[in-house]
């Protein structure tokens, strides 16, 4: 049981990292951190981006559930 959830957790962690990296970085790094420049966000998100969002949220939920389940299982 523990091994199974661990494997699920490892897989979902990797998928999570991959999905986050697939997103287009919004915000432009540090340059507009703490009120630097003028932030301009033109246009809405594309269909691809929206599907990616949905997928990331689902993976995130699975990842979260796995963490809690494993944490409860491993509790001494």
């Amino acid at each position: 049981m523990t091994i199974g959830i661990s494997i699920a957790l490892i897989l979902s962690s990797m998928l999570m990292i991959l999905l986050v990296l697939l997103h287009k970085g919004k915000g432009g790094g540090l340059s507009d951190l703490f009120g630097g420049g003028f932030s301009s966000s033109f246009g809405g998100s594309s269909v691809v981006e929206r599907n990616l969002d949905r997928l990331t949220i689902i993976t995130g939920v699975v990842w979260f559930v796995c963490i809690i389940a494993l944490g409860l299982l491993l509790k001494p």
Binding site: S13, M16, I17
Partner: peptide, 28 residues
């Protein structure tokens, strides 16, 4: 290994959360 991966993925999630706020929330 699981712990290292979980913490790394956590950092990725934080990055995404931050970008979501920049995109759809208030402030940076």
């Amino acid at each position: 290994i699981t712990m290292v991966l979980v913490m790394t993925a956590g950092t990725g999630v934080i990055m995404w959360l931050g970008e979501l706020v920049t995109d759809r929330g208030v402030g940076n």
